[in-house]
Design a protein around this nucleic acid. Structure first.
Length: 314
DNA sequence: AAAATTTGACCGTC
DNA sequence: GACGGTCAAATTTT
């Protein structure tokens, strides 16, 4: 893939930022819950989010390295993160001529979007699982979902969930195909109470565990983490191999007439253009503090380095 | 009993 | 023939 000319250098920079933040994080953990100031809380949240984002970035970048020998690298079907509607499903360019059992491969005209997330169900729609397959060259099965209102509203939206890693925070590649025509989104509360499709994930030790989205589990257990520290999603440009965007949890993927837009529950968000041109996503919000933090362990240059590492992989 | 999931079979594409 | 997306009967869950 034709990305950065110096990939190893970029990986080193991200790894450096990761280690830098990691080393400074304990400085913000001296306060107990009662002493936790808003500033420290925000800083801790930012650190958590930055660590998670950098971890994700490293994961993606290492996975993309040709011949890197990463844990997930293997044969053709376990392709790196060059997610393209053309290549992801091995399209042949023909529209299926029959509606019989077993019809497959979608046409090239059909829209698909690919994201990398640790919360594959958190998209505001109700899905029903209709299949599961062991895919060649991958360690995990691929799960197939259709819109629950397929037969009520004729909605043709489907998605595939493929676990990508078996880390403590398992990551999933989610491929959406076809747009929803059902207008059947659910609210956050409805989502929390909804029956979610069953999806298990593999732990590092190889055992299988039920997959429960973090936000649901935390709310059910009464454990509310700082909102910025919940989870991350990487939106992968499906056409141009642009750098992935790392999004923090307050962002919701919600449908609009064009597909999806991102909304934020955080007031101190800024808008940053994203280079994607395929209509998949054109604008991303990057959370920034409203003003310099007191006791901020980073100087401006370091923050610039972190920011550039996150956004541009510089 | 109804709804949801599982799983083997089917079938188009490569 | 291999692969993988979908179907649908069987099974499980609610």
């Amino acid at each position: 893939m034709a990305c950065e000319p110096d990939r190893d250098g970029a990986i080193r920079e991200v790894a450096k930022a990761y280690e830098f933040i990691k080393s400074y994080q304990p400085r913000l953990q001296f306060c107990d819950d009662h002493q936790l100031s808003a500033t420290t809380n925000l800083a801790q949240s930012l650190l958590n989010e930055a660590l998670r984002a950098l971890h994700l970035a490293l994961f993606v970048m290492n996975s993309e390295s040709p011949g890197s020998g990463g844990a997930e690298s293997s044969s053709r079907s376990n392709m790196p993160h060059v997610f393209s509607p053309m290549s992801a499903a091995g399209h042949a360019g023909g529209i299926p001529t029959q509606q019989r059992k077993g019809k497959r491969r979608r046409s090239t005209e059909e829209t698909s979007r690919v994201i990398l997330t640790d919360r594959p169900h958190d998209d505001g729609y109700v899905w029903r699982k209709y299949g599961e397959k062991k895919i060649n060259g991958t360690h995990f099965t691929r799960n197939y979902f259709r819109c629950s209102y397929k037969y009520d509203s004729g909605c043709q939206a489907t998605k595939q969930i493929q676990q990508q890693s078996s880390n403590d925070l398992p990551m999933f590649q989610v491929t959406y195909s076809s747009e929803h025509t059902c207008n059947c989104t659910i609210t956050t509360n409805e989502y929390i109470n909804a029956d979610l499709p069953q999806l298990s994930y593999r732990n590092p030790n190889g055992t299988s565990s039920p997959m429960v989205d973090n936000v649901i589990k935390h709310e059910q257990e009464g454990l509310l983490l700082p909102p910025l520290a919940e989870a991350s999603t990487v939106l992968l440009d499906s056409m141009s191999c642009q750098e992935p965007l790392v999004l923090s949890d307050p962002y919701n993927l919600s449908p609009n007439h064009d597909g999806y837009h991102m909304t934020s529950t955080n007031d101190c968000a800024s808008f940053f253009p994203c280079g994607s041109t395929d209509g998949y996503i054109e604008l991303a919000q990057m959370v920034l503090p409203p003003e310099p933090l007191e006791d901020n362990p980073f100087n401006d240059a370091e923050l610039d380095l972190l920011y550039n590492s996150l956004i541009y992989n510089k």
